[in-house]
Write a protein that binds this DNA or RNA. Sequence first.
DNA 1: ATGAATACTGAACCATAATTCATTAACGTG
DNA 2: CACGTTAATGAATTATGGTTCAGTATTCAT
Lengths: 199, 199
Amino acid sequence: MVQYSFYFMIDNKYDIILDAASQVFAREGFHKAKISKIAEIAGIGAGTIYLYFKNKEAILEEIFLRSWSRIEMKLLEMKKIKNMTPLQKIAEITAEIIELIYANVSVAKILVYEYSFWNSNKKEKLSKTVENSQKLIEELISDGIKANIFRKDINSKDATMYIIGGVWFWIASKSDDLLSYSKDELTDTLFNYIIYGLK
Amino acid sequence: MVQYSFYFMIDNKYDIILDAASQVFAREGFHKAKISKIAEIAGIGAGTIYLYFKNKEAILEEIFLRSWSRIEMKLLEMKKIKNMTPLQKIAEITAEIIELIYANVSVAKILVYEYSFWNSNKKEKLSKTVENSQKLIEELISDGIKANIFRKDINSKDATMYIIGGVWFWIASKSDDLLSYSKDELTDTLFNYIIYGLK
DNA sequence: ATGAATACTGAACCATAATTCATTAACGTG
DNA sequence: CACGTTAATGAATTATGGTTCAGTATTCAT
């Protein structure tokens, strides 16, 4: 039992598959991505994937869940902190998003292109995480409005979607040469768009 | 010959198919949408669709092309006008986008959810229209920066993607109750997000 | 070293749904 | 009203690729 667990940790086919799938999904898109190609890149047989994941969708689901969980965690962390302005908190969250993208550009691409996935796919866990994150961002914006930091004619729900959309597409436009910028540079640029728009 | 043309105009199966497809694509997403369902809604046989379109993808392509062509046209119109500030022009374009959405919410949804389609699908005509539109928006932002209307630390390409992304997701968040707002209301809100961000 | 347990494999299976095409219907013309 | 032409049909075909599973390899405890 212990040995099995240990073996699993070293080998970690689960993560190898996730990584291979991320590459293929990012390149081909979910629907055109072939399990056989994922298996090839992972260096395993196609059937093996089904020992680790229920089906193709479950792989994408896990990729989404991991990313969104990280964002959700950061949002919760910020919520707890009291001596920080909403503006500072948004700066922190922006940095976390850039960190996430920087760590894995393929995943960032997937989050953009397969956006409709989590939107239409009502899987409990994923759906809860995403919706919870959105609610937390909404709260943050609400706080900012109350504190007179943001325009008070803003609808926090609209703004949330606008921010998410802006971030996604901004990522999409860069995707390939994203890594040629420094993290600080990217964080700064993104933060400014969110807060100041074009003016 | 004349009769054929006239008959075609009345009957206009081409547009009927496009309309039916828009509904199904918006509801199910492109990949899950069935040709048989589109045919059913259009009130025709499945095979008939193939008399008007090469394949399923060509239908989606045409839906994209029509929408983007309209935006491109508006952008070109604005480019020609000299006595108008970039801000006013952006207001006009925002209004056009809202108009487009208002006319057909299904199409708006498709533009959001199937974003990856035109992005990955390198069909000459569509690709050219989209890229041209993006270039025109970039020019407009560039003008705004030169005229000291926009922040001068803005990268016009980034900003373009940020705007497009913001618009798309903002639409996505509303999609279902979009029609419960007035056009002017929507235009105003969207314009303000683009220009002023949150502050 | 051996056998039981576990992990892996990839060819075969199967479900789905896009597309085709032989057939039928509708139309326009003389 | 026939008859040629064009349009429409939907059942049958076909392509695709996700998923299964019978067989094989590997690991591990004794």
